[in-house]
Design a protein around this nucleic acid. Structure first.
Length: 555
RNA sequence: UGCCGGAUCGUCUAAUGGUAGGACAGCGGCCUUUGGAGCCGUAUGUGGAGGUUCGAAUCCUCCUCCGGCAGCCA
C-alpha cells in the first residue's frame, strides 16, 4: 500500500503544465503577505500549499512582502511573518523579497503604459471617482481627464512622483473600459499619492502602486509560474492579465482557491486586529487566537499544522471547516511525542491512614506508552497525596468509575486505595479524604490482579510543585461569528479559565517552553512563553484529551 | 438586479462517462493501570427537473440556492 499524496485541482494544472512544458519545467510559487498584521491559520494553509507545490515539483518558493501601502505596514509584522513562515517549515531559502524593492521598475512600467496610451493622470477626487464608477447595472462615466496627451500625462506623472501634489489630488489610472461589467476594468487606479513614511523606503516615494497594478508585476519580475491566491481575487484576474498583456512582459498564471474558514473563530486580519486593539484578547499571540504565533504559544506543533493542512485539502468551494479537524491533527501528533506526566489541576487532599507516615517510595512511571524509547522516570509516593476534585463524588451517577465513599480506585503507578472517610468543613465543603491502601496491589508487582474499575492520577502532597494552569475554550459561542455584524457579542466569556493552585509531579520543576507534555487523563500542556518564569510556572492547555466520560455526561 | 465563481455524507475532500471512496465528527463493540491511545464494525451524501447514453456526480438544457465584486485596502 503506497501513501498517495492527495491531489487537487492546482496540482492537476501544474502536472498538465509540466507535461506540455509550459514553463520550461519550472514551478515557482510565492506567499505574498502584506505586513499589516500577524499571520493566521488561513495563511498557514496558503503558505503550506505554495511551499508544498514548490517542494513536490522540485521548484522554488518565495516569501514576498506585498508592502505597497505605507499607512498600514510595520516592521513588527515583517518580523513576525518571517518567524511564522520559518516555524511552519516553508523553506524560502534566501528569498525574503519586498515589493517595495520593485518600485522603480514599476514606475518605469507605468511610464511605458502611458506611452502606449493605456494610462492617464486623473484629477478626479476620491468622491468624483466613486460617483463616475457606475453601479452593478449601470456603466460608469469616462473621466474628463481621460484623453490627456501622452506628453501631459508623462509630465503630470513625473510631478506626482516629485511630490508636487497633495494626497488624493491626482491618480494614475489605466485606460480600459468604463462600461465593463467587471468593475475592476473601469479605469482602475494604478497609483495614488500618499505622503507617508514607508517602513523600508522611508520618504523616497510619495506615490504608491495599488494591489492590482503591483501584484502581477511582482510575480512577473520574480518569474513566478503559478500565482496562487484566494477566491475574492477571481474578478481581478482579467485585470492581472490585462496589465501584463499590455506591457508584453513575462506572464504568470493566477489561480484562485477557497480560503480557510474555521468555525467558532474569525479569520480576517481586520477583525483579529480589532480583538487585539480593543483588548478582547491579550495580544496577537493570545492562545485563544487563530494566529500562528498563538498556536505556537499554545503548544501546537508545525507538524500538526502541516498535517491539518493536508487533511483539509484545496478546492474552489467556500467552506467552513470544523475545528475538530485541527484538534485531531494536534492530538494525533502529540499522542506520539508528548511525555506523560501527572498533574492535579484542582487538588483534593487524600491521607492514606495505613501508609507509614515517614515512608516515601519512588515509583516507576512510563514516559510515553506510544514510544518505547522514551523510557521511565520515578515519582515519589507517600501517605499524603492530592487527587483531582472531580475524581471523587459523594453521590455518583451511574457508570462513575472513580472514587466514592467506601469505594476503591487505583492510583496510577501506585496502589489501590479505598475511601474510608470524608472530612468536611462546617459548611459542608469537602476538605479531605481518609483512605486506606492495599499494600498487595502495587503496580508492576504482578500481584495487582485485583480489578478496580477506575484508575486516577495523583501527585504527592509533600513533593509536588505549584503551578498556574490556563485552560482555553473556543473564543466564540457561535459557529460563524463573522456572518453576524454584531460578531463581538458572541465572544465566549468562558474562553479562558485560570487555575491558580495546581499541583504537578516534581519532575516538572525543569519544564521548558516548546516542550509538549501530556498531563495524564487531562490533555496536552506546555509552559507558557509569556507568563511563566523561574519563580512561577504557568502552563497552557493545548487541547484536551478526548473525553468519552464528559460526552456521556452531557447527553 | 449586471458580471464572475461555486454546489458530493453532519464537516472537509476524492471519483475527470463505468461499483460514490477517504478523513474528522457520530454510533456500537473489543481492549485498556490514562473513561487517552489502539483495534473492529456501522449509519449517513451527488441541490431540483428534464435530456443524451447500454451506463451520468461527471456531458447538455432549464431552475434553485450559496459566495464574491461598486477602496486612492490587499
Amino acid at each position: 500500500m503506497t501513501e498517495e499524496k492527495k491531489t487537487n485541482f492546482i496540482r492537476e494544472i501544474i502536472e498538465e503544465d509540466l507535461k506540455t512544458n509550459k514553463w520550461g519545467g519550472r514551478v515557482h510559487t510565492r506567499f505574498p503577505p502584506e505586513p499589516n498584521g500577524y499571520l493566521h491559520i488561513g495563511h498557514a494553509k496558503s503558505i503550506l500549499l505554495n511551499y508544498g507545490l514548490a517542494r513536490d515539483y522540485k521548484g522554488k518558493f518565495n516569501l514576498r512582502f506585498d508592502d505597497t501601502n505605507p499607512e498600514k505596514e510595520e516592521q513588527e509584522y515583517v518580523d513576525s511573518i518571517i518567524e511564522d513562515v520559518k516555524w511552519l517549515g516553508a523553506d524560502f531559502e534566501d528569498r525574503i523579497l519586498f515589493a517595495s524593492d520593485y518600485f522603480e521598475q514599476m514606475y518605469q512600467y507605468a511610464v511605458d503604459l502611458i506611452n502606449k496610451g493605456n494610462a492617464y493622470v486623473c484629477d478626479l477626487s476620491a468622491d468624483g471617482i466613486r460617483e463616475t464608477r457606475g453601479t452593478l447595472t449601470e456603466p460608469g462615466k469616462e473621466s474628463p481627464y481621460r484623453n490627456r496627451s501622452v506628453e501631459e500625462n508623462l509630465n503630470l506623472f513625473e510631478r506626482m512622483r516629485n511630490g508636487e501634489f497633495p494626497n488624493g489630488a491626482k491618480t494614475l489610472r489605466a485606460k480600459i473600459d468604463m462600461a465593463s461589467a467587471n468593475f475592476n476594468l473601469r479605469d482602475p487606479i494604478m497609483y495614488r499619492i500618499v505622503h507617508s513614511e514607508h517602513h523600508r523606503q522611508g520618504s523616497d516615494w510619495c506615490i504608491y502602486p495599488t494591489y492590482d497594478w503591483a501584484h502581477g508585476l511582482e510575480d512577473s519580475i520574480e518569474g513566478i509560474t503559478h500565482s496562487i491566491c484566494t477566491l475574492e481575487f477571481e474578478n481581478h484576474r482579467p485585470l492581472y492579465d490585462w496589465y501584463l498583456n499590455q506591457l508584453g512582459i513575462y506572464h504568470p498564471q493566477q489561480i484562485e482557491f477557497a480560503r480557510l474558514n474555521l468555525n467558532y473563530t474569525v479569520m480576517s486580519k481586520r477583525k483579529l486586529l480589532q480583538l487585539v486593539k480593543e483588548s478582547y484578547v491579550d495580544g496577537w499571540d493570545d492562545p485563544r487566537m487563530p494566529t500562528i504565533s498563538a498556536y505556537r504559544r499554545r503548544g501546537y506543533t508545525p507538524e500538526s499544522i502541516r498535517s491539518f493542512s493536508d487533511i483539509i485539502g484545496v478546492a474552489k468551494r467556500d467552506a467552513l471547516t470544523d475545528i475538530s479537524l485541527l484538534e485531531f491533527a494536534i492530538r494525533d501528533d502529540l499522542n506520539k511525542r508528548a511525555q506523560r506526566v501527572m498533574a492535579v489541576l484542582k487538588p483534593l487532599k487524600v491521607v492514606i491512614t495505613n501508609y507509614p507516615e515517614e515512608k516515601v517510595e519512588d515509583l516507576n512511571a512510563v514516559n510515553n506508552p506510544e514510544d518505547e524509547k522514551s523510557g521511565y522516570r520515578t515519582i515519589p509516593f507517600c501517605s499524603e497525596i492530592f487527587i483531582e476534585q472531580s475524581d471523587f463524588m459523594e453521590d455518583p451517577p451511574k457508570k462513575y468509575f472513580r472514587l466514592v465513599p467506601g469505594g476503591e480506585v487505583r492510583l496510577k503507578y501506585a496502589y489501590v486505595i479505598k475511601c474510608e472517610e470524608v472530612i468536611k468543613s462546617s459548611s459542608g465543603e469537602i476538605l479531605e479524604l481518609r483512605c486506606t491502601y492495599d499494600p498487595e496491589t502495587r503496580s508492576g508487582t504482578g500481584t495487582s490482579a485485583r480489578k478496580v474499575k477506575g484508575t486516577i492520577h495523583w501527585v504527592s502532597a509533600r513533593h509536588s510543585i505549584d503551578a498556574e494552569v490556563r485552560l482555553y475554550d473556543r473564543l466564540f459561542n457561535i459557529e460563524d461569528p463573522a456572518a453576524d455584524d454584531n460578531w463581538l457579542e458572541h465572544i465566549n466569556p468562558d474562553s479562558l479559565e485560570i487555575v491558580k493552585n495546581s499541583k504537578l509531579e516534581p519532575s516538572l520543576k525543569n519544564a521548558r517552553t516548546r516542550v509538549n507534555y501530556q498531563f495524564e487523563r487531562l490533555g496536552y500542556f506546555c509552559v507558557d512563553s509569556k507568563y511563566s518564569n523561574e519563580h512561577s510556572l504557568v502552563f497552557n492547555r493545548t487541547v484536551t484529551l478526548k473525553d468519552t466520560w464528559a460526552k456521556l455526561n452531557k447527553s
